[in-house]
Design a protein around this nucleic acid. Structure first.
Length: 599
RNA sequence: GCCCCCGUAGCUCAGGGGAUAGAGCACCGGCCUCCGGAGCCGGGAGCGUAGGUUCGAAUCCUACCGGGGGUACCA
């Protein structure tokens, strides 16, 4: 059983999603292009919120509204285009407190919102919304910043100065990765990318459970298979690993080292286990590389037990628990007093056999993460079947001196495979196992990643191999998005052949509906990145990518880009094409999906 | 029993206090003298049930029904 089979739920302690707190003074003066680009990096939404905030304060200052305590402003994206680019419901929420009709509150605020960049229009709409429309010229000007950012477009600074560790997959090295591990891999990797884009300092980590009973069993199974390689009739140990991969592993050891362990009286020989583990980890690393998932750090569980300067991490952590009176001995075992911390029951740390449990290692591991390595936030990505471990692990973090709330556990639900109508069994028993490698070989890394990320972690997932692998790319949204990117590149090639180049001289010619929609879609990436990062929900990327690709395709379909007779309009549309390509590339990069120039 | 996740269109799923609930697939009907038709445009159909909170509920709360997971001196 692996940690990635674990589950859980996005933490309670997530920062507020899009609550905006204003720490800077009133906006004033004109913007140069460069300054406005910097503001873009902070997300347009924030600037809009600041203008609304100022208006709200002004309304109170001049008596149009009675004094009210500070309130959180929420700036939203209305669904309907007619409602502008942003909307704010603050008047509705304030109405009863100030004993005024919502529409009155709304106009009092709206009248005082500065019509300055980036805002062009402010409207009040029943029942009391303030709708804000961005200045189209300002928006078009932002395209240059997008092009300059390239596939780095969308980066923001909300996470600046915070170190986050994302620990994911962490499957036991006793067998190959399975499809469920793939979901954790893609989820963790994309989340890390999104956090990185949001300005966090991110580390991707894989925890190798290379200690404990399951490793001994792995070694004994491997030793039996190894002996069988020489024609000996040695039975597998009780509960041993049945998979054929153990036979392959044994054959490889035989090729590598011949009879070296054949007459060993150890069961298993320590270095046989060690070599077997190395090979398994190597295979896991390869499987993940096929999915384009790479880690900054591979942490071995066994290292927690190695003494450095006298005491191991494990010893230090256990001593901390003892010093804090968080342990109790009963029934011959050592327990973590979780009941005292509000849990249902205590948890065994050290078995009556004297052997530490997995939970004890985990306590030491999280002590290491927080107290030794000093991460501000640790996000563990676990499969839903480990949901029961969340509370006690948090409690343990607090008990060893960390902040339990800084440990977030992102739980993802199970994956069911099917081919069209046919359910594909994902048995943990012998034989029928569908490995991650098989999945990637069948559908490719791009489709595997895109499909895995199309669902929120909370939702169980049906993964349709037929659709993901379909020769008909219409079944495959990943291809649709990649195609849009390739088409951008293709248009640029065509333009180049016609002697046309992009230019920002006449961006005012970009006024068609499809052009406005595409511009808005491109420009909303930074705030999407913030939302995804703060809510730990990378799956929105797939929807954004599709919506952006669709906006580009509609633009392409309606507005002819390369028209030699109209060089100015062409130049403007080529600028838009380049910006769309950059935004597509940025989304695909965070998704970990290829952004090809041709397909 | 208790704990966690999920019930939204025929299917797979977004949306998770706000204005007329969306996408893809499937189905039906249109669109190629033109930059890649791997495309575009149009059409029908839906928030498990019952209460509650709220100016406003698919969204929050309670109960119930249904599906999945957990509840070890396993990991």
């Amino acid at each position: 059983m692996s940690r990635s089979d674990r589950g859980g739920h996005p933490p309670a302690a997530i920062p507020p999603d899009i609550l905006l707190f204003w720490t800077f003074g009133p906006y004033s003066g004109d913007l140069t292009v460069q300054e406005s680009n910097e503001i873009m990096a902070r997300a347009t939404r924030e600037l809009v919120g600041e203008l609304v905030r100022n208006a709200l304060e002004l309304a109170q200052a001049d008596g149009a509204l009675p004094p009210i305590p500070p309130i959180e402003l929420r700036i939203e994206r209305p669904k309907e285009r007619e409602h502008g680019d942003y909307s704010c419901n603050v008047a509705l929420r304030l109405a009863s407190a100030v004993r005024m009709p919502p529409m009155g509150v709304a106009s009092a605020i709206a009248q005082r919102i500065l019509r300055t960049e980036p805002i062009a229009e402010v409207d009040v709409a029943p029942p009391g919304f303030i709708n804000l429309t961005l200045d189209p010229e300002w928006q078009r000007g932002q395209l240059l910043a997008v092009i300059e950012a390239g596939d780095e477009w969308g980066r923001t600074e909300v996470g600046a100065g915070q170190r986050v560790q994302v620990e994911f997959v962490s499957a036991n090295p006793t067998g190959p990765l399975q499809v469920g591990n793939g979901r954790g891999a893609v989820l963790g990797d994309a989340l890390a990318s999104v956090l990185d884009a949001a300005g966090f300092e991110v580390e991707r980590e894989y925890y190798i459970n290379d200690a404990g009973a399951q490793i001994r069993l792995f070694g004994r199974t491997l030793f039996a298979r190894y002996q069988q390689q020489f024609g000996r009739e040695v039975p597998l140990p009780d509960g041993g690993y049945q998979g054929a991969y153990m036979i392959d592993l044994a054959a490889r050891l035989k090729d590598e080292t011949g009879e070296r362990w054949l007459e060993s009286s150890d069961d298993p020989p320590a270095d046989l286990t060690e070599r077997g583990l190395e090979l398994m980890v190597e295979q896991i690393r390869e499987d993940l590389a096929m999915l384009r998932v790479e880690f900054n750090h591979w942490q071995r569980e066994s290292a927690l037990f190695e003494a450095a300067n006298g005491a191991s991490t494990y010893d230090v952590a256990m001593n901390r628990l003892r010093d804090g009176s968080f342990v109790i001995e009963k029934e011959g075992a050592v327990w973590f007093r979780a009941e005292d911390l509000g849990e249902d029951k205590d948890n065994v740390l050290i078995r009556s056999s004297g052997e530490p449990t997995y939970f004890a290692s985990d306590v030491a591991y999280h002590y290491d993460k927080f107290l030794r390595r000093g991460f501000d936030t640790v996000i563990d990505v676990w499969g839903a079947d480990h949901q029961g471990h969340v509370a006690r692990t948090r409690a343990a973090v607090s008990a060893v001196g960390g902040d339990g709330d800084a440990l977030e556990v992102l739980l993802y639900q199970l994956v069911h495979l099917r081919r069209g109508e046919e359910r594909v069994r994902m048995s943990k028993r012998t034989g029928e196992i569908v490995t991650l490698r098989e999945l990637v070989e069948e559908v490719g890394a791009d489709a595997a990643r895109f499909f895995m990320l199309q669902r929120s972690a909370d939702a169980q997932m049906d993964f349709d191999l037929e659709a993901a692998a379909s020769a008909d790319p219409r079944q495959n949204p990943a291809s649709y998005v990649k195609y849009a990117h390739a088409r951008c590149a293709s248009v640029m090639r065509t333009a180049s052949d016609a002697g046309l180049t992009a230019s920002s001289d006449h961006l005012d010619l970009l006024a068609a509906d499809q052009e406005s929609v595409l511009i808005a879609e491109i420009l909303r990436l930074p705030e999407l990145v913030e939302d995804m990062a703060l809510k730990r929900e990378p799956h929105h990327l797939t929807y954004y990518a599709q919506s952006l690709a669709q906006a580009f395709t509609q633009f392409y379909d309606t507005c002819r880009i390369v028209v030699p007779e109209e060089p100015q309009r062409s130049a403007a549309r080529l600028t838009l094409t380049l910006a769309a390509q950059a935004a597509l590339a940025a989304a695909l990069r965070m998704l970990g999906v290829d952004a090809p120039d041709e397909m």
